[in-house]
Amino acid sequence: MKLEVDTHTHTYASGHAYSTLLENVQQAKESGLKMFCTTDHSESMPGAPHHWFFANQKILPRFISGIAVIRGVEANIMNVQGEIDIPLHVQASLDWVIASLHEFVFKPANKKEHTTALINTIKSGCVDALGHLGNPNYDFDFHAVIACAKEHNVAIEINNTSLRGGSRVGSIDRCYEIACVARDLGAFITTGTDSHFCEQIGRLALVSDLLDKVKMPSEQVITYSTRQFLNFLRLRGKPAITEYAALL
Rank of each mutant, 00 (worst) to 15 (best):
M1K: 00
E4I: 01
E4C: 02
H8Y: 02
H8A: 04
H8T: 01
Y12V: 01
H16T: 00
L21Q: 06
L22N: 08
N24W: 00
N24E: 07
V25G: 00
K29T: 03
E30Q: 06
E30N: 08
F36E: 03
F36Q: 01
T39L: 09
T39A: 09
D40N: 10
S42A: 15
E43C: 08
M45I: 09
P46A: 07
P46S: 08
W52Y: 13
A55H: 05
Q57C: 09
Q57Y: 14
K58H: 10
I59D: 14
I59F: 11
L60E: 11
P61W: 11
R62E: 11
R62S: 13
F63R: 14
I64N: 05
S65M: 07
G66Y: 06
I67G: 04
V69M: 10
G72Y: 13
A75W: 14
N76M: 09
I77P: 07
E83G: 11
E83I: 11
I86R: 10
L88D: 15
H89V: 09
V90L: 10
A92D: 15
A92K: 15
S93H: 14
S93D: 12
W96G: 06
S100W: 13
E103G: 15
P108T: 15
A109G: 13
N110E: 11
A117T: 10
L118T: 03
N120E: 12
I122F: 07
I122P: 03
K123V: 07
K123Y: 09
K123M: 13
S124Y: 09
S124T: 08
C126V: 08
V127E: 08
G131Q: 07
H132A: 13
F140A: 04
F142D: 01
V145D: 03
A147L: 01
C148Q: 02
A149K: 03
N153E: 07
A155H: 05
I156N: 01
E157I: 02
E157R: 04
I158P: 00
T161A: 15
G166L: 09
G166D: 05
R168D: 00
V169P: 04
G170D: 02
R174C: 07
C175F: 06
Y176V: 07
I178H: 05
A179M: 11
G186P: 09
G186T: 04
T191Q: 00
T193E: 11
D194W: 00
D194A: 10
S195W: 05
H196Q: 05
E199L: 13
Q200R: 11
I201F: 04
R203P: 00
A205Y: 14
L206R: 13
D212S: 12
K215A: 15
S218D: 10
E219Y: 14
E219I: 01
V221W: 00
T223S: 10
R227N: 02
Q228A: 13
F229G: 02
L235I: 09
L235Q: 15
P239E: 14
P239Y: 03
A240T: 12
A240S: 12
A240E: 15
I241Q: 07
T242G: 08
Y244N: 02
Y244I: 02
